[in-house]
Write a protein that binds this DNA or RNA. Structure first.
Lengths: 231, 231
DNA sequence: TGGTGCATCTCGACA
DNA sequence: TGTCGAGGTGCACCA
């Protein structure tokens, strides 16, 4: 990992052509050859970048550019696609190298698929005595997260979200509309299950007769592990 | 812009929960308060991050964590959504601050819309004596980039791409299929216009009777400016 | 290895 | 301001 702060201009050519005028930026050159060019704002997307596999070469500065003040020119190229990034450096403000090693990587937890799996194993949370028909129940507009039947036999479509917002309600409404036309599922009702629900989404759901179920992920995980959580 | 290289562990809670085990990483703290956590590989997406608007607070290290070797704890929180990033720092390897100023930003050039506009002004490139019917000609599955009529009156649908690939051919095929049913456009033919075309796309296009037109963006821009390019 | 769909998507255009 | 669609999307999952 090499970190450089430099006054530079950048040109990209590939799927499109793009240019960054002269300014001071961060150049992050990673061990895999990739290069990220960041400014002091914006979100995580760099102003410009080259993804691996690629290679960085320091090329000779043309007389004309040297005249204009360029001290170094980097060329980062992607062998396969032919995409190329050219960085003209006018001044290096900072330059450091660091050994980072291989990262153990991100552990994601509590994503929708986890919640869905846990809830499919604990359908009693939806309705006492309910039975799972299936996960990812297919419809013409995509699969419904869970289809279950209450003890009474009434079908329920369940939409699972980490955080339920308006679009989750809309999504479930479309499923219910479609599934309700199936004679085997007539009278189907909806449950929106989520760890959190935005107030607007709750209002809309209730207005449409959709029940809201708040899930306690930690508790559900505790049940999964076969014992109540002790801490 | 503050750049820190540190051995750290990170926890994110928000739309989901995520954890990064102890390892050496780059912490990029931008002037707008945002924080990016990068490893020495992968593409431009950080392992973890917090987007602005947010604030970074250095909070007290609990006795337990201090015991475990934590020297500093950062809490980056998004006021509105409640998302939070907690960084436990065990060792700082590098720490530097830099004034970058406001970036002039990226200038994109040669994107599809530019090509489309230029070609709509130079329809002779498609067929000598052709006339533009309209740009973004609407159909049920979306607008066709250009609809023109040859000198003979025969209609032509044009799909413009910076770099034409298989899906561009498929897209144009669907338009042709649909437009051909309109009696006013019967016999319509297709032209795929692009700066570059992948060999597979060329083969598929020609197999379907779609003509391929290679565009010289610089030349087209030269014509636009009213004079041939001198350099 | 290519195809598909999701994302803590990001980002710009437009109503 | 919210919504919609594209992206040099990245990324995981799956055939």
């Amino acid at each position: 990992m090499r970190l450089v702060i430099a006054r530079c201009s950048v040109d990209y050519t590939g799927r499109l052509n793009a240019h960054l005028p002269l300014a001071t930026r961060v150049l992050m050159h990673k061990a895999d050859g990739s290069l990220l060019i960041h400014s002091d704002g914006g979100s995580y997307k760099p102003l410009n970048w080259m993804s691996p596999p690629c290679r960085l070469d320091v090329v000779e500065v043309s007389a004309e550019l040297a005249e204009a003040g360029v001290t170094e020119t980097w060329k980062v190229s992607h062998a396969k696609t032919g995409d190329a990034l050219t960085v003209h450096i006018y001044e290096i403000v900072h330059d450091s190298k660091h050994e980072l090693g291989i990262d153990p990587g991100l552990i994601k937890d509590g994503v929708e698929s986890d919640l869905q799996r846990l809830l499919s194993e604990q359908v009693d949370l939806i309705s006492e005595g309910a039975k799972l028909v299936r996960r990812e129940y297919p419809t013409a507009i995509g699969p419904v997260d869970l289809l279950v039947r209450e003890a009474s036999g009434m079908p329920i479509a369940v939409e699972v979200k980490r955080r339920a917002e308006i679009d989750g309600v809309e999504q479930l409404s479309r499923y219910l509309d479609l599934l309700g036309r199936d004679p085997l599922l007539s009278g189907i009702r909806g449950v929106l299950a989520a760890q959190e629900i935005k107030p607007q989404a709750r209002v809309l759901a209730e207005d449409r007769g959709i029940r809201v179920l708040i899930l306690d992920y930690d508790e559900m995980k505790g049940i999964e592990s076969g014992a109540p959580r002790l801490f």
